[in-house]
Structures are given as C-alpha cells and as structure tokens.
C-alpha cells in the first residue's frame, strides 16, 4: 500500500528533482530555460512533509532541500494535496512571488510538461533512440533518489534500511549515469554522482537492460544470475537496496 507522506517525498525529490537532470540532458528544456533573464527560485513547502527550493537559471536548475530564500513560495497544506499538484489534479497557489507568476505559468509549466512527456512516454516516442535514452537516464535518477526516500519514509522501506550497514553504494548503468546511495545510521541519501570509495556496487550492463528492469520486464535477481547485472562488495547492502527497488515499483510503477 502506498503511503501518502512517502509519495510526497518521492514526488518532491525523485520526480521534481529529476528536473535537474532533464534540464541538463534535454535540448528542449535548454531552449525553455534560455528565456530566463534572471535566476528564479521556487519553493514548495508541504505541511508535515517535504520542503525544497529549486533555483532556475538559463543554464539549468538545482534543487536544495528545505525552505530557502526564494522568489516564489508555494505552501501546500498536506502531503495528499502536494501529490495531487504533481498529478495535475490541483493547481498550486503561491503565497509569495505574484510578480513572477509568469515564470510559474509559462517556464515552470513548460518544464514540468516536458518532464511528464519524458517520464510517461508514448510508445511511438520511445522508438526514437535519443528520446529512449533520455527517458531511461531520467528514470534512473528518479529511481536513485526514490530509493533513499523510501528507505527513510516508508514503513517497510525503513525495515530494509535498518539492515543496511554504513557506506556508499554505487548504483549505475555501464557507460551511462551513476549515483551514490549513501547509508549512515540507516538513513539514506542519494548523490547524483559516483562515490569515491564504494562499499558495494550494482551496475547494469547497458541502458536497454536498465529500461527492462525499470519497466518490470526483467528481474534484478535473474540478471545477477545471467551476469547482466554486476555486483561487488557488501552484498547485504545490495540485497536490501533491491528490496527498496521493489518498493519503488509500487510507488512509481
């Protein structure tokens, strides 16, 4: 069963957070961003839930955890409401930054529309290899961040995290994106780059395999057996990360 609070954390950091990567990888997003004359920061502050501030420039965007000084602030009354905003069934209302409403309505909406297009692609769109790779890379970052959120928020996910020893897990696709899942006292943090000294490694052989795993047409354990997933190091960390991956499918599948 999905927990609304966990879902809100996923929506904030894993889904909205993927804007960082999309803006870096996607020419269409770069074009949208090129219209930004001065940096704009947008803060979502969810009551009893996550809070993050995203800073947009003409070059890209970066998300920071928490409420930071911002141009536009959107307070959200509950995790449920925030999830509805991300689903597109509720319109966000800012409490600050009415002069920047144009950014919210045009630029931000164009970026999130593009995010939806990439993350929920049509079959036709996926036939284009470039778009396919963009989808898989963005999905990778979404999943990598979702792992930490589920390990920290979801009741069953916390159980998996409780069995993880301290250290960095390298989670990646060969010749593709790589992330670090950092464990410290059973609290998880995702860093969108490879660790310097991983204590465990889980690497998919290629982007097509990653897609098959993300869409549930391949099983990670089976891939370990056939050698298409490479694992090294503290396997108990990977074992428990796999259990978190199972939960990611529940929330984002």
């Amino acid at each position: 069963m999905k927990d609304q609070k966990t879902m809100a954390y996923l929506n904030m950091y894993a889904v909205l957070g993927t804007l960082e990567n999309l803006c870096e990888l996607d020419p269409k997003c770069k074009e949208i961003l090129s219209g930004i004359k001065k940096p704009v920061s947008l803060c979502f502050d969810v009551k009893d839930g996550p809070a993050a501030t995203i800073k947009f420039t003409s070059k890209g965007c970066r998300m920071e955890d928490g409420v930071k000084p911002c141009d536009i602030k959107i307070p959200v009354s509950s995790c449920e409401k925030f999830n509805q905003i991300i689903d597109g069934t509720v319109t966000p209302v800012p409490s600050k930054g009415f002069s920047k409403i144009g950014f919210l309505l045009k630029t931000f909406t164009a970026l999130t529309d593009r995010l939806s297009e990439v993350m929920q692609p049509s079959e036709e769109a996926m036939k284009d290899r470039e778009f396919f790779e963009l989808n898989v890379k963005c999905t990778f970052y979404t999943i990598a961040v979702a792992l930490a959120q589920i390990g920290n928020q979801d009741e069953i996910g916390k159980h998996s995290a409780s069995y993880m020893v301290d250290g960095d897990i390298l989670f990646g696709i060969k010749d593709g994106p790589t992330a670090t899942l950092r464990v410290k006292d059973h609290h998880l943090v995702t860093i969108k780059q490879a660790p310097e000294k991983p204590r465990a490694i889980m690497k998919f052989s290629d982007i097509d395999l990653a897609y098959a795993l993300f869409t549930g047409t391949a099983n990670a354990l089976e891939c370990v057996c056939n050698g298409s997933i490479e694992i090294h190091g503290m396997a108990s960390m990977i074992d428990n990360m796999n259990r978190l991956l199972d939960r990611v499918a529940l929330y984002l599948g």
């Binding site: 354990l221 089976e222 370990v224 057996c225 056939n226 050698g227 490479e230 694992i231 090294h232 396997a235």
Partner: peptide, 24 residues
Amino acid sequence: ALKVIPAGIYGHLGPSEGLWIPIQ
C-alpha cells in the same frame, strides 16, 4: 538452464545467493 529454470540455479547453490562474483 536459464531458458527453463528460473534464475538458472536458484537459491543458495546459485550465482545470486551464492554470490558468484564474478560469475565467470
């Protein structure tokens, strides 16, 4: 085996639970 047995060799005697690193 991979074609007819789930995971080829499942469980502790197989590559996954048996941690055959690297499998070769």
